[in-house]
Structures are given as structure tokens and as C-alpha cells.
Design a protein around this nucleic acid. Structure first.
Lengths: 178, 178
DNA sequence: AACCTAGCTGACCGATCGGACAGGATCTGT
DNA sequence: ACAGATCCTGTCCGATCGGTCAGCTAGGTT
């Protein structure tokens, strides 16, 4: 049997995905795991800590992407940023197994790493160099769409999805796919 | 001064946008309006009714789009569907003034018109005819992105946005823009 | 004056929330 | 056998939730 902590995280991720963070009570998680609510609060200091731990890798990955992106310029930067975000989205889906549902609710959560700001910086870096405001909006669409697609748990093999998302995002950004 | 009902709807829309449906209490709305919580429940039967009224036009518009889409085929259908959704998104932003934040939370709400199913049908009709599954995912991205862009309140003039979104969505769908 | 109605409110309700805490159960090292 | 640590739970708490209800107030009708 896996550890209690892991089970809690797994259940929490699934329930947060299904009903949102605010829509999932500690009792809901405890019932799903099959333990008491107090047991949750033994392993995690509070409800926010559960969410925080689920999102920790996301914050780190976003930082890594930004660091890799910083010295680059132009089309290469855009391409790498998109691929980085796709990578992140895929890992999000495979490993952490949390499916973002009420995205903005989560992003605005004070306990989380500053995903919102990090993403905005990426988008600025990504589409700021593209001609006009058109690509800015389209870029937002694509990037938010990437996360949302993963959030909806679109049932597509990872490899296929990777290519699709990368191409789709680049296409939306007004760049040729190859 | 505008009517009490209108003020409640306006405040509710703004607060739902800022903190989500579950994240906004009746007391929050009442404080924002400057009336008592009981007054809200005099004008609306319950909290769900407020949300329901805010979303009513969306359900009607989606039905209209579907009806117009039904007899069409191929590329024309895709184009019209996208434009219809853009139209909807713009009206969403201008008139209703509600900014969808926790999208899936709202879409899954039992009191709402079946926006989720309607949207899915549209996406199926829209990208089902495109070659392969690639466009399916990309289509999802684009459409969800359209709503999300409006949800984020991207500050772009309507006319510009309309063109951008239409082009962006069509481009993501793998169709030429003109 | 008397009455009715629409709009609104304070007080209250049961349910549920996140969280605190003391203590039971089990295991390990001595 | 004993002690300590680890893991887990039942119980309780204050706060807040959505919602109910009796009643207040002001304006119009008779």
C-alpha cells in the first residue's frame, strides 16, 4: 500500500479537479481516502498546504522555463517557451495528476507559487515581440488553452498531444510550424 | 439610480468574476451593493438564481448558434460557429459584464443552462470535420481560450478583438484566414 | 383615518466549514 | 516489561455559510 501522504495528495488532486478547491472539503478528501479528517491535518498543516504541495512542481518548472527563456530572443524564444509550457502541462497531467479546474481561483490563491505572474511574464516575453496586439490576444488564448486542455483531461496520448499543442500554439501565434 | 435588481446583478457579476461563485458569499454581495443579505433573497429566490439570471443570455445565444450551424457543412459551418462564439464572447463581456473565472465550476453548475454540453456539441461540429484528432485538441484550445480571454478581461477594443479571435481560432483550426 | 402592498431588514436557524486538541493504538529500541 | 515516537481518531470549537421569517417602513388607494 502506498503511503498515507501520497494517498491524500492523490485523492485531493482528483477531488480538486472534480469540484474545485473551494468545492472540496477536508471531509470529502478524508472520505475518499478512507481516513479521518483529523488524519489529514496530521500530515498537512492545513488545507492550503495540500494544495501548495500539489502545485510546488509547477512553480519550479515555470521558473526553469523563464530562466532558459531569458537569454533568448525572437522566434527561438517563442518556440522554446511554448514547448516548455507544453512540457509543463504534460507533466502536470502525468505526474502530479492534478487537473486544474477553477484555474483563476487556484492561480489567485495566496499560498501558491506566483504562477499567475510567472505565466504573464512568459506570455509577455512570448508574444510581446510578435507584430501588433493581435498576437498578444491570440497568444493568451493559446497558452491558457494549453492549460485548460490538460485541465479538461483531453484523452490524447502524450506524444500526440505534445506535437499538437506545440503546433497549435505556434500557429495561433502566427508562426509557421516548420 | 438604477433598480435594486440590476445593482445586485452587477455586483454579483463583478464579485463572481473576482472570487468565483463559491468564493463569493451572499454577505459579500450585500455589502458590495450596500443592502442587507435578506434583501438579496427578496429579489432572488436563492444564490443560484442570481447566477442563473446572469447566465441566461449565454444559454439562449448558444442555442441560436447551434440552430444556425445545423444546416451548414464543412468550412462555412466552422467559420460561422467560430464567429458566433466570438459574438457570444463579446456580448458576454460588454453586456452581461460577468467574467467567467472558475469556468468549469460554473459550467458544471446544475442551475445553469447546459452551456457545457452545448459548447461541446459546437466543438464537435466545428472540429469534427477537420483532419485528425490534432485539430480537435487545438479547437478545444481555441474555443476555451476565447472564453478565457474574455474572462480575463483582455483590454482590447471590440472590433480588433473580433478579428483577432476569429482569425486566431480559424488558424488554430488549421484553416486559412482568408 | 384605515388599509394594502412592495421593498427591505434584523434576528435567527441548522448545516457545514477549517482547524485544535487530548488521547488511543501500534511499533521500535532498550 | 517499559518508554518513547509515530500514526491516527473522536470530539469539540468558533466562524461562516445559505436561507427563513416576522415585522418595520413608506407610498398609494379607499
Amino acid at each position: 500500500m502506498t503511503s498515507m501522504r501520497a494517498e491524500i495528495l492523490e485523492s485531493a488532486a482528483r477531488l480538486f479537479a472534480a469540484h474545485g478547491f473551494r468545492g472540496t472539503s477536508l471531509q470529502d478528501i478524508a472520505s475518499d481516502v478512507g481516513c479521518s479528517k483529523a488524519s489529514l491535518l496530521y500530515h498537512f498543516t492545513n488545507k492550503d498546504a495540500i494544495l501548495s504541495e500539489l502545485f510546488a512542481p509547477v512553480g519550479r518548472d515555470l521558473e526553469t522555463i523563464q530562466e532558459k527563456l531569458a537569454p533568448l530572443e525572437g522566434e527561438q524564444a517563442a518556440r522554446e517557451a511554448v514547448e516548455g509550457l507544453v512540457e509543463l502541462a504534460l507533466r502536470f497531467r502525468r505526474q502530479v495528476k492534478i487537473l486544474i479546474v477553477d484555474v483563476d481561483d487556484l492561480l489567485g490563491h495566496p499560498e501558491l507559487p506566483d504562477v499567475d505572474h510567472a505565466t504573464e511574464s512568459l506570455v509577455d516575453a512570448l508574444v510581446g515581440r510578435a507584430p501588433g496586439q493581435e498576437c498578444r490576444v491570440a497568444g493568451w488564448m493559446a497558452l491558457v488553452g494549453i492549460f485548460l486542455s490538460c485541465a479538461r483531461g483531453v484523452d490524447v496520448p502524450d506524444e500526440v498531444m505534445r506535437v499538437e499543442l506545440t503546433r497549435g500554439a505556434l500557429r495561433t501565434l502566427g508562426r509557421p510550424t516548420d
